[in-house]
């Protein structure tokens, strides 16, 4: 290697290139997020179809002796989660008007609803009369709702991190609110998955 540059210059150039080319082009992060959610959706779709396959191959579904699922609590949970989608959308409207206080209010409320949903699900788990290994239905029930619950948890964490960042003055505004939008899109996604899950596991 001839004409080597000192380490210092190198570092400078590094930061420089990082600094410049990530800002230079328009923002594709929302597009990327949506493509990512298509991939996530495919995991769920795979699991849903596996569930339907197990169901269609079983002589009886749920297998004989499976205790009936209670509808009351998950029903309330569904209502909470669905309405949280409307709530989180208020935050989006707020930040587009540069209203950070509004953003914090609606995001805080959404996070709370998400946590209530998770609590409700844990309560349901602890009162069910079947365990993970009881039978094929029980196993799919726990894995599907658990996997979805994991996504709700991630969603709540996303929302909380947006809340955390919104404490910094000027972090979000009319022009720059990728985090807000991303959390919102993710939350809607989690919601849609829940509706499908609810129909599959509880209603069908």
């Amino acid at each position: 290697m001839q004409g080597s540059i000192s380490d210092k210059t190198q570092i400078n150039i590094e930061t420089d290139t990082h600094g410049s080319h990530h800002e230079a082009h328009p923002d594709f992060r929302i597009f990327g997020l949506i493509v990512f959610l298509v991939a996530e959706g495919m995991i769920f779709l795979g699991l849903f179809i596996a569930y339907l396959a197990f169901r269609s191959m079983a002589p009886e579904w749920p297998p004989a002796g499976t205790p009936k699922l209670e509808l009351m609590l998950p029903g309330i949970n569904t209502v909470i989660l669905l309405s949280s989608s409307l709530v989180i959308h208020q935050a989006d409207t707020a930040i587009k008007k540069n209203d950070v206080k509004g953003l914090q209010l609606w995001f805080g409320l959404t996070a709370l609803m998400g946590i209530i949903f998770l609590g409700g699900q844990l309560y349901e788990y602890s009162h069910l009369e079947f365990g993970l290994r009881t039978n094929l239905f029980a196993s799919t029930f726990y894995v599907l709702t658990g996997f979805h619950g994991l996504h709700v948890t991630v969603g709540v964490l996303l929302i909380l991190s947006v809340l955390w960042r919104s404490m910094k003055p000027e972090h979000y505004g009319t022009q720059n609110h990728f985090g807000v939008e991303a959390a919102e899109i993710y939350w809607h996604f989690v919601d849609v998955i829940w509706v499908l899950l609810f129909i599959l596991l509880y209603l069908l």
Binding site: A39, E40, G41
Partner: peptide, 28 residues
């Protein structure tokens, strides 16, 4: 992602003793 789904179920069979794919426990 669909492979990921299959592997998640397989890992439950392997580690948690479920029977998604294990005919011995009624799986397919």
């Amino acid at each position: 992602p669909v492979l990921a789904g299959a592997l998640i179920l397989l890992s439950f069979d392997l580690i948690a003793g479920t029977a998604f794919f294990n005919p011995a426990g009624g799986g397919e």
